[in-house]
Design a protein around this nucleic acid. Structure first.
Lengths: 109, 109
DNA sequence: TGACTATATGCTCATGTGGTCATACAGTGC
DNA sequence: GCACTGTATGACCACATGAGCATATAGTCA
């Protein structure tokens, strides 16, 4: 069993996954989808971005299997494909909080 | 307690963290550092990239507190600042493996 | 000081991509 | 068919940034 899962074969795939998540609006969309399925219009309102922009990011997220899409009537309902993304966010948030704490301590906060 | 940690305040920071990790060479560097501290030269050899390039990415990783730097003699020894990054990679790798499995099954592999 | 090694840093270029706009396409109801 | 709503797409721009090169800086040793 390898010590880490970052063998060169996976490396590009992992980087790509991270890169996909490295866009605030996409995180915002995922965060909204965490509450349940949403239409494009819902997400446009929730994020305050434009419809084409949201739609494009949804296409990207869909292409990388981060969300699922279901057409019902006139609307497209998107939902999170793999809840594991939120575990990622939790870890990162933990990191950031920790870093901020250290900074506060370092600057005598 | 919020359901998710992705409140708007953290959103940019989280996205940035992901973006930093979204570069194959940087992952390669971190993967190498997982084994222990390394000099720039070590990393240049390990990654096959150029010295300025590795150095620049190390600067980026350092600026975002993902690695630590310690100058000893003529060399700069870098090491992982927060091992939690590897948890991230584990999760992502898990995701990817799962996705590949599903693909194989879908295509009758 | 001078030669050498190790590392960092500008400069430049090429590329990727997020955002915006206009517009096309699809589904619904009349 | 026609009007309307919802979604996707293509063209375009602006910007960020990864990579390569030359070079500067810093540390070591004689």
């Amino acid at each position: 069993m390898p010590k880490t899962s970052l063998n060169p074969r996976n490396l590009d795939a992992v980087a790509t996954r991270f890169r996909i998540l490295g866009v605030p609006l996409r995180l915002q969309i995922l965060n909204e989808l965490a509450e349940g399925e949403r239409t494009v219009t819902d997400l446009v309102e929730a994020t305050g971005s434009t419809q084409p922009n949201v739609s494009k990011h949804l296409t990207t997220l869909l292409a990388h299997r981060l969300v699922k899409r279901e057409q019902r009537g006139n609307s497209a309902y998107y939902s999170v494909a793999d809840p594991a993304v939120f575990d990622l966010c939790e870890i990162v948030c933990g990191n950031i909080e920790r870093a901020l704490d250290e900074e506060r301590r370092a600057f005598g906060g």
